[in-house]
């Protein structure tokens, strides 16, 4: 039985670490997001191994069902023409890699193996199900719970305000082709505010934007 658990742990760990390495190294950003989902799934499996059943389900519901889908969505909304010569990493990635490896090998691993973790030799299998968590949230952790709720509300409002288009540019209906052309011609003489900035070096060759797809249908609401 021990061996079964160890094998399961090994497979889960390999999945998590392998997927995480693919996330940071793979070139295609959509593939990176898909590997991120695989990594989240592995972590949910690990939670199950650690008897945190509720947390595993929340992990699947929130990370895979919401955060990862949001990431994929954002990637698709901000698609740029893929330039195969453009590097995916900063120039200083070697020093970053060195820092990360040093952090792992020189700080974390020695700490983990030298510290005496006072573990229970055979911990009682407690069950942290929704009932226990609910009682804890409503008693000992009531204030953090409320603050988390306020934080979520603030994030919701903030995200909407940041990502919302200008009120003037929002359209109440889908335009016909003639109206679209007329509107574009009307906008042409006055260049958009963006070109007042010095053009960024890497993307100076991108053609003047076709109005992004999300502007065309009034889906902002």
């Amino acid at each position: 039985m021990d061996l079964v658990v160890q094998i399961m742990f090994g497979v889960t760990g390999l999945l998590i670490l392998g997927a995480a390495l693919m996330v940071v190294s793979v070139r295609n950003i959509i593939h990176a997001a898909l590997w991120l989902i695989a990594c989240f799934f592995g972590i949910a499996m690990l939670y199950l191994l650690l008897h945190a059943e509720f947390l595993a389900i929340v992990q699947v519901l929130l990370y895979i069902g919401a955060v990862a889908v949001l990431v994929l969505f954002a990637v698709m909304l901000t698609r740029q023409i893929d330039d195969p010569d453009e590097p995916v990493l900063f120039q200083r990635w070697r020093s970053t890699l060195l820092i990360a490896v040093l952090l792992f090998a020189a700080v974390l691993v020695p700490t983990i193996y030298t510290h005496d973790w006072q573990t229970f030799t055979d911990p009682q299998p407690t069950f942290a199900g929704p009932r226990e968590l609910g009682f804890a949230f409503m008693n000992a952790y009531l204030l953090p719970f409320q603050i988390a709720a306020v934080l979520l509300l603030a994030a919701l409002v903030g995200a909407i305000i940041i990502a919302m288009e200008d009120q003037e540019q929002r359209r109440v209906r889908v335009l016909t082709l003639a109206e679209e052309v007329a509107l574009r011609r009307e906008r042409e003489p006055s260049p958009p505010a963006r070109s007042a900035h010095p053009q960024p070096t890497s993307s100076s060759t991108t053609p003047p934007p076709v109005p992004p797809a999300h502007e065309q249908a009034g889906e902002g609401a």
């Binding site: 995480a20 940071v24 997001a33 990493l89 970053t96 890699l97 990360a100 792992f104 974390l108």
Partner: peptide, 18 residues
């Protein structure tokens, strides 16, 4: 900790904001 370091490397060295 391995996962943390991989994420650390990714957050510091990828150019794409997402």
């Amino acid at each position: 900790s391995g996962l943390f370091c991989v994420g650390f490397f990714g957050a510091l060295s990828r150019r794409h904001a997402v």
